[in-house]
Design a binder for these strands. Structure first.
Lengths: 190, 190
DNA sequence: CCGGCGCTGTTCCGATCGGGACAAGGAGCG
DNA sequence: CGCTCCTTGTCCCGATCGGAACAGCGCCGG
């Protein structure tokens, strides 16, 4: 491949930087941490950081992108067309579960509104892509993206009080109500 | 110094190897793990391992030696002659507390009798050095070393059910009984 | 007995990294 | 305004590391 990520040193450097990032978000918050603090915690030179990432935002983005790529791989590898729609959300929340420290840190009180917006946008895209039938309009898709983001935030912020399957079912049920309402023909009275 | 340990890379390599070692002892036991397994877990090359250590035993020894050096530094820095004898054991168990994963792994069921013997020998030396009055003979010193080792093993094996101060006090009390008995003039009847 | 297999410990070369320096810019302060 | 201090992003060189190969050894099964 063009840029072999196979190299042990760069994989290790990135892993150390990721773990340090999550730790420091939990401790000090995302906007209050510097590249130098992350590299010091990770026992990595600042130069090595900049060899891998442009800034701390790109570090977050790459973790997120790889996580999403892994998620999409999991969804599509199960079968040709993937699992049925209901099971798909279970797989999704199991994915959130695996990366819960990362998501909890960035969506929590010490996280970043920048990342929350990124998450909403990404989930809105997923809704447009994977929801059957797809939302009729852009507004319901955006609202559903925000709903799922909030479900995740609630779930992680309360220490995951139920199983991935349960939170997936409850979230899907709430989403179903919105979809039904959005697909109703417009009327003036209830 | 001749070989500056200041270098970030060697410090990082050693830390990764140590953490991986403790994890693998907890999982598989000390005698059942190979150098290759440790380096793989640590994300470090086997060559880097052998640059720092001769074998897995020396890895353990260096962790232990540095921990002991840090302990002796703590004991002697508090005052010119160090803290009073009773307080010294508290400091000692607080040290065990800091490294509890390491000691628990190596002294526990999946640890190594080789390390337990090393620990007893080291504690026997400490008893000879720091106990006032010093044991009259080599036998009581060895017995006291084994007693303290067992106190540590019990404390760690039961998940540290009491504070370092409490286990220190209880251990010192038991040791006191042995010392008193050892110092009694020899008689034939009670 | 032999052959495969896994682990050990060593060696080499090229790749990556750490240390340190640098200019540039922003924030706080008097 | 100037001044200090911190952070950013980039560069270089020498140090360390990863990858891979190698012989040697013990272990196990046939």
């Amino acid at each position: 491949m063009s840029q072999p990520t196979e190299n042990l040193r760069v994989r290790r450097t990135r892993k150390l930087l990721r773990d340090a990032l999550v730790e420091l978000i939990e401790e000090r918050g995302f906007d209050r941490l510097t590249v130098g603090q992350v590299t010091e915690r990770a026992m990595v030179s600042r130069a090595a950081f900049y060899r891998n990432y442009a800034d701390k935002y790109q570090l977050v983005e790459q973790i997120f992108d790889e996580a999403m790529a892994e998620l999409l791989g999991t969804v599509s590898e199960d079968a040709g067309a993937g699992p049925p729609a209901a099971e798909r959300w279970v797989v999704f929340f199991e994915h959130i579960d695996r990366y819960h420290r990362f998501y909890a840190a960035l969506l929590g009180a010490k996280g970043s509104p920048w990342f929350a917006a990124k998450m909403r946008a990404s989930l809105t895209d997923m809704v447009k892509e994977h929801l059957r039938p797809p939302p009729s309009d852009s507004l319901p898709a955006a609202v559903l993206g925000a709903m799922f983001t909030q479900s995740i935030t609630w779930w992680l912020g309360n220490g995951r009080p139920c199983t991935p399957r349960e939170i997936a079912t409850r979230s899907a049920r709430l989403a179903g109500a919105v979809i039904a309402e959005a697909n109703r023909p417009p009327t003036n009275s209830p």
